[in-house]
Nucleic acid binder design. Structure first.
Lengths: 221, 221
DNA sequence: GTGGAATCTTTGACGACTCAAAGATATCAT
DNA sequence: ATGATATCTTTGAGTCGTCAAAGATTCCAC
């Protein structure tokens, strides 16, 4: 229904909302940055979205999804994440290289196809990066996770989700055996050096605390 | 590289060429009809394609693919047919309902993804309708086929390809057990009634001779 | 509370693709 | 070979999404 461009704006607005503060208004500059257009373009487009009842918008006041807009956004996210799951799990593509393809395919799959894909994949609840896949009604079943940087030294936790999905970071995790589902022991943090050391499969891996904030572990262990 | 619209025009021109007369020029009216635009739009667009070296074009003289255009067209066809194969064989979709999805997806898959898909599917040489899938260099390995309407009465043949891919015809074939690969015995033709009767799996099925022209059997039995 | 600085909006324009309708050319039957 | 008809081309205009640059508003530091 919505055009590909519209879907991208809605997805951007959805994912730009601050965690915990979902009703806050997203600055248009952020939207422009996420979609990859100039601020003026974002303003024009957001006004159009408002006209279609997909967002609430006030001049100089940021933008906020309506219920209708949020539904559309979660539908796109569902398509994106199911497609990424398929590309990695079924076709064996690398989790650091599937984003582009998923970005394009997410606008091209019908509901019938998506339902088949969901069934084929066994109705997964998270994608290869650990991001939750909304169900067909747009509901998320988010597992409770916490950054490994916040875990107690000496505790054993299970990696559950990667928040920084840049190909470089993902490849770094790959190279060091840090995968979703891996069990790791959090070693000493070195606040001075700004690093944290993890033990995974007998090997020690040291990462920056900033990076450790983007690597989440499941809380229930 | 080429835009989605350009790919659709090239694919249309490629598939509109008369079998056996591949160097003939395709009338622009046919292109317009296949792409679903008005004749004026087709003229404008074909001139643009000519400017990009994808087709040869002369006013009032029809259009013809260049080598470059033909490469691009076969690449689209390859994507389309591999995707249809995936949708039917892997996801279990009906061969009468995959066309729309394939039409959209064919413009959204990367080379890397297509290579993975091809491997996953076991490098198929034909799609679910029996249409040959060009290899990565654009070469077709077409099996020799003949319309069942031309087969000798009493002969046993194997169904190999469906030229009329309208959902109605495909569903008719489904309902009557006429599938690609099925072995059928050609019974009597009734030129008066304009029908032909086939025996498949012990059951008799009568189809119009026109329809029998669109149902192909492999020659080597 | 005021004067930048940062952010957002408006404006005019453009490229890609499209249509409707008027005009040009080709084709075919007589 | 000459109209009538079918086909093709041109023209003018419209939509969608975009940008650059100028103008408006908000925010923050002092």
């Amino acid at each position: 229904m919505a055009t590909e461009t519209v879907e991208n704006y809605l997805k951007a607005i959805f994912t730009l909302r601050k965690p915990g503060d979902e009703d806050a208004r997203v600055p248009l500059g952020d939207v422009a940055g996420a979609v990859g257009v100039t601020p003026g373009t974002a303003t024009t487009m957001v006004k159009k979205l408002a006209g279609e009842g997909l967002v609430r918008y006030e001049r100089y006041g940021g933008v906020q999804l309506t219920v209708k807009g949020e539904r559309a956004a979660t539908a796109v996210l569902r398509r994106h994440r199911l497609i990424e799951t398929f590309l990695v799990k079924t076709l064996g593509m690398d989790w650091s290289e599937v984003h582009e393809d998923a970005e394009r395919l997410e606008h091209a799959v019908s509901d019938a196809l998506l339902e088949r894909l969901d069934r084929f994949l066994g109705r997964p609840s998270v994608d290869p990066h650990g991001d939750p896949i909304p169900d067909i009604d747009g509901r998320f079943r988010e597992a409770r996770v916490v950054p490994v940087g916040r875990c107690k030294a000496g505790s054993r936790v299970r990696l559950a989700r990667v928040m920084d999905q840049s190909p470089e970071f993902l490849r770094f995790l790959d190279r060091n055996g840090l995968r979703i589902g891996s069990s790791v022991v959090v070693q000493s943090a070195e606040p001075g050096a700004g690093t944290l050391t993890l033990k995974v499969g007998g090997k020690m891996v040291t990462i920056a605390l900033a990076a450790a904030g983007n690597l989440m572990a499941s809380v229930a262990e």
